[in-house]
Amino acid sequence: MDATNKKLPPRERKNEWPKYLAWAFVAALIIWAFVGMPAFAIKPNAGQIGGSIMSGIFHPDWAYVYRGDGEDLVSTLLQTIAIAFIGTFISAIVSLPFAFWAANTKHEFWLVTRSGKFLLTAIRTFPEIVLALMFIKAVGPSAFAGVLAVGFHSVGMLAKLFSEAIENLDNGAGESVTSAGGTRMDVTMLATIPQLLPELISNTLYRFELAIRSASILGIVGAGGIGTPLIFAISARAWSRVGIILLGIVIMVTLVDFISGSIRKKLI
């Protein structure tokens, strides 16, 4: 008789009940989620509104691309890139000490590392849109609030990636510097940082790609960038302007992803 056709022993069959219990829990969760959803109510004029939106997207307002008044598409896209770039650049510098704090291999006491990881998790808990609302109350509605929101959230993300890179470092170079009489600062500057630099730049560029997307919507709450004219155009039902703004965002994100991805491939 083939071994695959043999029945499982009673003990092995009993050990399968956690798997069935997990599947039952997932099924119950899915059913509960769908039951709790409101009824799908479609407005009578939904087709007309959808047609207007699609017509505006496929017939964009080309006159809005550049007008020279600082409120056109090119100016707001450049402001969005500036918000993402400055926020990411500042956070990359601020993240380094937090990364060494949270790295497992750099502390003798586990409580130090755990406290660093807990702090980074707490920072990442707040989405950029919530941080933007908080900073707007502090500094007013402006691009500076967007920079602070992107930068603060990026510290939590970059420091986590940097700390993982530190944990995966090869200690051979550091041991060589130490055996040659180098101090701990010499180990950091001559062995740790040179090994980390490609990884730091790659992670920073990746975070910049994500920051571009975040900065594109922060203007919806008044934190500068392309989101501000976008929400105004949607409120005014100016679908042609919405179309050109969305087209500009797609081109901007695509170009940034392509350039950043090309640089990261050369670094890795």
Rank of each mutant, 00 (worst) to 15 (best):
A159Y: 03
I212F: 00
V177L: 00
K160M: 06
M189P: 09
L196Q: 08
E209C: 03
T204Q: 09
L205S: 04
I201F: 11
N203A: 08
I166K: 00
L169K: 06
L210R: 06
S163E: 05
L169M: 13
L196C: 09
L190E: 06
G174T: 03
Y206S: 05
A159G: 05
G172A: 12
S176A: 15
T204F: 03
M189N: 12
A173E: 02
G174V: 05
A211N: 14
E164F: 04
A211C: 13
T188M: 11
E175V: 06
A159S: 03
S176E: 10
K160G: 00
R184Q: 14
F208T: 03
G172E: 07
K160R: 11
S176K: 13
L205I: 08
A159M: 04
Y206E: 07
E167M: 05
F162K: 00
N203H: 10
D170P: 09
G182I: 14
L200S: 00
E175T: 06
Q195G: 04
S176G: 13
L169D: 01
S202A: 13
P198Q: 01
M185Q: 14
G181S: 03
M185H: 13
V187S: 11
E175R: 15
L169G: 01
G181V: 07
Q195F: 04
N171P: 11
R207P: 00
K160F: 02
D186M: 07
D186H: 14
S214W: 09
L197V: 12
L161R: 02
P194T: 13
L161E: 07
A159N: 00
G182W: 15
A165T: 12
T192G: 05
T192P: 00
E199Y: 15
T183H: 05
N203R: 14
E199T: 14
T188F: 15
